[in-house]
């Protein structure tokens, strides 16, 4: 999934560099805080292991002649934690670019985001959310598979968004997104199977290597929700920039060729529409009172998407609080 230079425009590549630099700075700070001095060689050598592991192919049942291999970000995230895994994968991506010419120099920022930061954090958050207890082999397989598949698809979706924003696609964005995500879903499942098989092997033969890692821990659920919220916000903001200013399917059907298919002369409907227009804080995803031709400005669409996402999440959280059953207290009063 290494992006060559040709998939990005210069402004998007510069933006990706800035985001990647900020992300790498943060994960390096977190890794320095959490990783002891003795673990530094382990990080370096596991990075080299990821290179080597990519050489171990195994044939796939379909399509004929295809083979799969470990990509490694989720495995590293399970073994080392997300911040250290992101640092290791960043170094792998930099060496792949500068020494082995895999991925363009201009696309380095984008590749760090897609191949290091996103898979490490998303994969680790999902894995820890459904992490197995010791001895639960089936759950370990499922957790590794789901984590790898989601991490891969998230990275592929980000790649599509970056390419779409660059405006280099001759293919419609939705086709490109569907194709890339579909392919990477399959790759992610294969990655998950091999990651799980590797974890099972290490747990059986060398438990010391993964001992104490890959288990659920107190911050797991918090981390999962934080990652999910960040993913939703980023996706909403970025996808809304690519939103078409054409009417949607229903609007188009209603207004095609100026011919009205549905007509409702009821004054109640008209007054409800008026009230809705007056009360809606952002009618048609824009500022109230904006001229029609200004309405679909990218900035306002993004703002509307993010605000909408936050409000929806707050509403869901409030509903879940309301319908949650009150657990009896575990504390006893003397």
């Amino acid at each position: 999934m290494h992006m060559p230079n040709e998939l990005l425009s210069v402004p998007v590549a510069a933006g990706c560099f800035a985001v990647a630099a900020a992300g790498v700075g943060l994960v390096c700070k977190a890794a320095e805080k959490n990783i002891s001095q003795e673990k530094i060689p382990l990080m370096g050598i596991l990075g080299a292991f990821i290179f080597a592991a990519q050489m171990v192919n195994f044939p796939l049942p379909f399509p004929p002649g295809a083979s799969g291999h470990l990509t490694g970000a989720v495995f590293l995230a399970i073994v080392l934690g997300p911040a250290a895994a992101a640092v290791v994968m960043t170094s792998v991506v930099i060496v792949q670019c500068l020494i082995f010419q895999d991925g363009g120099l201009l696309a380095l920022g984008g590749n760090i985001i897609n191949l290091a930061i996103i898979p490490a954090f998303v994969g680790c958050a999902v894995y820890r959310f459904i992490a197995p207890k010791p001895g639960e082999k089936a759950r370990l397989y499922i957790a590794a598979m789901i984590a790898s598949a989601i991490a891969m698809v998230a990275a592929a979706a980000m790649l599509s968004i970056e390419t779409g924003l660059s405006g280099v696609l001759a293919v419609p964005f939705s086709h490109f997104l569907a194709a890339i995500c579909g392919i990477h879903l399959v790759i992610g499942i294969i990655e998950g199977v091999i990651t799980a098989a590797l974890l099972v092997y290490l747990r059986k033969m060398r438990p010391d290597v993964i001992d104490g890692y890959g288990q659920a821990h107190p911050g797991s659920k918090r981390m999962f929700f934080a990652t999910a919220i960040a993913a939703v916000l980023i996706t909403a903001a970025c996808l809304s920039l690519l939103a078409s200013d054409k009417p949607d399917g229903l609007e188009y059907t209603i207004g095609a060729d100026g011919e009205t298919i549905i007509e409702n002369p009821s004054p109640a409907a008209a007054s409800a529409d008026n009230l809705h227009d007056k009360l809606a804080p952002m009618p048609d995803y824009s500022r109230p009172g904006m001229a029609d031709n200004d309405k679909v400005s990218n900035g306002w669409t993004s703002f509307a998407a993010v605000t909408g996402s936050i409000i929806t999440m707050l509403a869901v959280w409030a509903c879940s609080r309301l319908i949650r059953r009150k657990e009896p207290s575990q504390c006893t009063t003397q």
Partner: peptide, 15 residues
């Protein structure tokens, strides 16, 4: 970052 440069150095040494 210092840790990243060290990581790249070790990675290249052991690849």
């Amino acid at each position: 970052p210092r840790i990243l440069v060290m990581q790249i150095a070790l990675l290249h040494r052991y690849i």
